[in-house]
Structure formats: structure tokens, C-alpha cells
């Protein structure tokens, strides 16, 4: 195996931070989050599951799509795309899996999304395997694993005295050129991932359960707070709006921005005039689960869930996606 020490790894990351937007797990007031870092001292190497996914760096929670300048009747539009390369260090395998789910919509469905594609191309994913599954985790039920290299460019695994380094893609290999590596005997121990498997029911069986009473039971306690979509690595709904940044001397500067949205919000489907075809919480929560396990796979291929478990630990009223999956499986005859 290829091996590096923590000190070499730190030195490499410190150098990367000079030339890249380096995003890594950080302690922010007691919360572990993927955040921009300026040097290696800010990076956590021993952490559980960051509280938010990494999608913010590919599909930002607020992103400027266009800078608009209006001068009388003259208007100019300019796309706002950052040109620096970006490294996501310490991303967990489930979060990389989430990006592949987003790829199926934003890259593979025509027309591709210019902004997402740009971020995806400028980004290299350096993952750090989870040493175990955490509270709420069920990645192994969604086709992942705590040490799954599949969706990453480089995977690091903690081993005695340092890290085993596994380049996965050419992009990852190129980034590793600056890291001092040595060949060592042996290989990292597999991570114990023995969490009980959650059943995934195929889309066609979901269709038969659309009017099931279970949606009332799960949905009536929903608070429409939308935290589930906010923490989710695959939720991708967005809103687009304009904001006026400056009005001066006959010139108006405007930003056309894209922001995250969530189908569990009260007025998500409301139209001008007031009609709302999805007026109740059970209907909206049902849409969330159908999107992930019925519509998304039917329309775009992959399941809309990677089993990160964040929605389970974040939900203020204890709505548990694995409980829903068990209920669906049970009602579909296992």
C-alpha cells in the first residue's frame, strides 16, 4: 500500500491551500463542518460525520448565476464562475456518493447545468474513510460503505502511524504528485460495517402505496422546517431570484441568485392565485420520500439517498427515513 504520515499529509494540505480553495472538516463553535481552510492547523483529522453534507461546494446554498448591470435601457449580463481549483479534503464516502447522485441530474440530463459542471470540473475529492458507522448511518443499505473509494478521486484510510493512500482517478493521481508517499507492506483493515440493512423497495412497488395511511402517520408530525433537505447530500431543489446590490448614478447592479429550496416547505407548489396541489404536510413529506426512492431512480437512475443518516439525527420530531423504508417494505410484502 501507499503510505504517508500525518506530518507529510499536513504539509501537503498546507501547500494545496495556497493554490486551491481548500475545503476540509473544521470545528466551528463545536460543530464539525466542511469549511474553507487557510492552513492545515484548522483541519480536523479525527471527526465523525460533518453535520452538513459537501453539496454546498458544488451546488452552493446561495450562488450568483448572473451579475446584471442596468444602465437606463442598456443591460449587460455576466456569468459569475470562480476560476480557482477546489479540493474537498476529508469528505466522507457517502458525501462523494451524494455528488454522483446529483451528477445524474445536473450533468447527465440534457441540458447540463453550467454552474454545477464548472464546480465539478474544478474540484478534486480527497476522501477520508469513516473508521466506523455513526449514529443513524445506513450507507451500506444504499450501496455504499464507510471506506468506499468508488466516487472519490483519492481515498485515505487511517492506519498505524499514518494513512494508506489510494488514488482512484487520474485527477486524484495528479493531485497526489506533491505528497510524499512510501510503499509499505500490508493493507488497511476493513472497516467494521455491520449495521442492520434497511430494505429498499423498488419504485414500481412504491406506486401502489401512494394513498397508504402511513403517509398521514409520518407526515402529520412534520413541522415543515426543511432541515432534512438542508442537511441532505442529494436534495437539489432550488429557487432563482434577483437581488439589487447597488443603485447609484443611474446604474443598478443586480445579482441573479440560485438558492436551495425544499419540497417540504408549505408553499412549495402554490401558484399565483393561491391554488396549492400539495396543501398538506403528509402530501409534502410523501413527495420527499417518493422523490428519493421512486421518481429520482425512475427519471435519472440512482436512488436519491446515500444513507448518510443526517436527516434522522436532525429532524426535530424524529421522522426517520429508515422507519419509512421499513414500513414501505413491510406493506409491499417484504
Amino acid at each position: 500500500m501507499r503510505f504517508t504520515t500525518l506530518n507529510e499529509l499536513r504539509a501537503w494540505l498546507d501547500r494545496l491551500a495556497q493554490e486551491h480553495d481548500l475545503i476540509a472538516p473544521r470545528d466551528v463553535d463545536g460543530h464539525v463542518l466542511y469549511r474553507p481552510v487557510a492552513s492545515d492547523d484548522e483541519i480536523l483529522f479525527d471527526y465523525e460525520r460533518p453535520e452538513l453534507s459537501a453539496k454546498d461546494y458544488l451546488l452552493p446554498s446561495t450562488e450568483i448565476l448572473l451579475r446584471v448591470e442596468k444602465r437606463g435601457s442598456e443591460v449587460t449580463l455576466e456569468e459569475a464562475l470562480p476560476d480557482r481549483r477546489q479540493v474537498l479534503f476529508g469528505i466522507r464516502p457517502c458525501d462523494a456518493h451524494g455528488l454522483v447522485v446529483l451528477d445524474a441530474l445536473f450533468l447527465e440530463q440534457d441540458p447540463p447545468d453550467l454552474y454545477y459542471r464548472h464546480h465539478r470540473e474544478r474540484t478534486t475529492l480527497v476522501g477520508l474513510a469513516c473508521p466506523q458507522m455513526w449514529e443513524g448511518c445506513f450507507c451500506t443499505s444504499m450501496g455504499g460503505a464507510p471506506d468506499d473509494p468508488t466516487h472519490l478521486d483519492v481515498l485515505l484510510k487511517p492506519v498505524d502511524g499514518g494513512y494508506a493512500v489510494e488514488p482512484v482517478t487520474g485527477k486524484g493521481m495528479a493531485l497526489l504528485e506533491g505528497l510524499a508517499l512510501e510503499e509499505r507492506e500490508g493493507k488497511p483493515l476493513p472497516v467494521v460495517a455491520d449495521a442492520e440493512l434497511v430494505p429498499v423497495t423498488p419504485p414500481e412497488k412504491w406506486r401502489a402505496l401512494f394513498e397508504d395511511q402511513m403517509w398521514m402517520r409520518h407526515g402529520e408530525r412534520c413541522l415543515s422546517c426543511r432541515i432534512c433537505a438542508y442537511v441532505c447530500p442529494t436534495c437539489r431543489c432550488f429557487d432563482v431570484t434577483d437581488r439589487v446590490v447597488e443603485e447609484r448614478a443611474g446604474v443598478t447592479r443586480i445579482e441573479c441568485i440560485r438558492v436551495w429550496d425544499a419540497c417540504t416547505s408549505t408553499n412549495y407548489r402554490r401558484v399565483a392565485g393561491g391554488h396549492n396541489p400539495r396543501p398538506t404536510k403528509p402530501e409534502r413529506l410523501r413527495n420527499r420520500f417518493y422523490c428519493k426512492f421512486c421518481y429520482y431512480p425512475e427519471d435519472f437512475g440512482p436512488l436519491g439517498c446515500v444513507g448518510c443518516g443526517r436527516c434522522i439525527v436532525s429532524c426535530p420530531v424524529g421522522i426517520d427515513i429508515t422507519e419509512v423504508l421499513h414500513d414501505v417494505a413491510e406493506r409491499s410484502g417484504g
Binding site: Q109, F238, D239, V240, D261, R269, P277, Y295, E298
Partner: peptide
């Protein structure tokens, strides 16, 4: 049919009726 769409190109999620 109508919906309060935000992209018009099948990405934003807003206008789904089922799949």
C-alpha cells in the same frame, strides 16, 4: 398545466407531478 417553476428545464424540482 402550470406550476411556479424556477428553471423550466427539469432541474429545480418545483413542478413535479409524481415522476
Amino acid at each position: 398545466l402550470e406550476a411556479r417553476m424556477h428553471c423550466g428545464i427539469g432541474k429545480c424540482g418545483r413542478c413535479n407531478l409524481g415522476e
